[in-house]
Design a protein around this nucleic acid. Structure first.
Lengths: 93, 93
DNA sequence: TAAATAGGTTTACAGTATAAACCAATTTAT
DNA sequence: ATAAATTGGTTTATACTGTAAACCTATTTA
């Protein structure tokens, strides 16, 4: 009936990030920050967690002379997101 | 885009409880405990929070000689649940 | 009369989320 | 030149949350 909800995804900010990444495939830190209206600190921490779980990949580079952090959802991340949504439906329908 | 999710409802156990109460209108503690597969302690704490938020009403009585705790969702609770679900859809669609 | 069960509540602790403080480099203003 | 502001983040301190374990009172069963 109520299957457990992946705690990594059951978090407002991380869920928003995954939701964005699933549609755009790849996104910059600042893009995620704007869209989620989060602080940089909070976002940084939550991206770390998603990366450690293998749900996203984070690439650090430079654009011109400035640091640039790019995030991309992984196959594992997509599957986890889809499973989460499926489970969640039992709770809200 | 990503509206804030009511933190009181964005919790696996409390959401499950609200989901049950919205369909049955009234339920006993032990019923909720079985359906949610939670421990009594955890359930007790979370029911308290839902009550303090005005989302449910808790009535304590006796069945025979044993204590009986009955929970009922309030109008405010129903509205909060519906708003939560609406907001959540932005995240998972 | 001791042990198990029912029906919970309280509480201690670990985990989580968040903002504030910080950092290094770059750009802009003086 | 150099001070101040901005960019693009990370680290860290703290408050908040979730949970199980311990506990409690009464009842039933052995």
């Amino acid at each position: 009936m109520f299957k457990p909800l992946d705690p990594l995804l059951h978090s407002q900010l991380r869920l928003a990030v995954m939701s964005l990444l699933i549609s755009v495939e790849e996104a910059e830190f600042t893009f995620l920050k704007e869209k989620t209206e989060s602080t940089a600190g909070n976002l940084s921490v939550q991206l770390d967690k998603l990366e450690k779980a293998g749900y996203i990949e984070i690439e650090k580079s430079f654009r011109g002379k400035r640091p640039l952090t790019t995030c991309k959802i992984t196959k594992k991340g997509i599957e986890a997101f889809e499973a989460y949504v499926d489970n969640l439906k039992n709770y809200i329908q």
